[in-house]
């Protein structure tokens, strides 16, 4: 199976993997709505992609924590696009607290942006896709969600929650022909990782990550996949590390 995505919404489309996904979909001729909270960045991305002269790109300013706004914005964008085949939830933030810092405001922001906003958008999309008996939902989770890590407590919690949410959603709607894809990238070279003190291993570009994500989504069958796949081996090891050892690692 190879799905064609002709009309897509990318929430968190102003930078990083979201913007790159928008670019690649647009190059393929898809009409793409990019949703993000930074109006200027969003306009720049849309302007650049529209100038490239492929699929139309529509920018829409929205803070994913403004949950009430999501339904009407979703309806408007679906109307503008003339339907919907694909919704990508790529919005996400990561905070790495220093040792000895316990910051609820940051933990909360990560849960709201990475998880609750994702629930708001994917619920609406799942209802629509169930009704139309087709459609793909892609959620950008992370390998970080596989274990609770001392260096990024809120982030790993949020990604574990997002992974569980997407699995639950898949189990609800796969029977109606809806493709729910969980992608769990390892380390990708984006603004999010740029400030990390230690350069992580096996880092890939956002461009490469986006092309792997789209290839995974197009295959259908509601997969959950590490991006790239070799991170699956890392996850396997992570899963089997006893907590008594894991807590001593600088992860």
């Amino acid at each position: 199976m190879s799905l064609r995505f002709q009309r897509a919404i990318i929430v968190g489309g102003s930078s990083g993997m979201g913007a790159e996904l928008a670019r690649q979909l647009s190059v393929d001729g898809a009409a793409v709505a990019i949703v993000g909270h930074r109006a200027d960045e969003l306009a720049q991305v849309a302007g650049r992609l529209n100038a490239a002269g492929k699929g139309r790109v529509i920018p829409a300013t929205h803070d994913v924590r403004n949950y009430d706004e999501a339904p009407s914005l979703f309806e408007r964008l679906v109307g503008d696009l003339g339907g919907l085949d694909l919704l990508v939830y790529a919005a996400g933030v990561m905070f790495v607290p220093e040792d000895g810092v316990y910051d609820f405001a940051q933990d909360r922001a990560q849960m709201e942006i990475n998880v609750v906003g994702g629930m708001a958008w994917t619920n609406i999309a799942a209802a629509r896709f169930e009704a139309q008996r087709s459609g793909t939902i892609v959620g950008l989770s992370s390998i970080a969600g596989e274990r609770g890590r001392r260096t990024m407590p809120g982030y790993t919690t949020s990604k574990a929650a997002l992974t569980a949410w997407l699995e639950a959603l898949r189990n609800r709607v796969a029977r109606y022909g809806v493709n729910v894809v969980t992608v769990k990238p390892g380390v990708v070279d984006t603004a999010m990782t740029r400030d990390l003190v230690r350069k992580p291993p096996m880092m890939i570009s956002a461009e490469r990550a986006a092309s792997l994500i789209l290839a995974t989504a197009r295959r259908g069958g509601s997969p959950s996949a590490f991006i790239p796949a070799r991170w699956g081996l890392v996850a396997l090891v992570l899963h089997h590390l006893p907590s008594s050892i894991f807590r001593r690692l600088d992860l």
Binding site: N123, I124, A127, R128, E130, A131, Q132, R133
Partner: peptide, 15 residues
């Protein structure tokens, strides 16, 4: 809440 409803014929649905 969102709810998927169908027509009685089951050939049309809406969220």
């Amino acid at each position: 809440p969102w709810r998927v409803l169908d027509g009685f014929g089951g050939a049309q649905r809406a969220a």
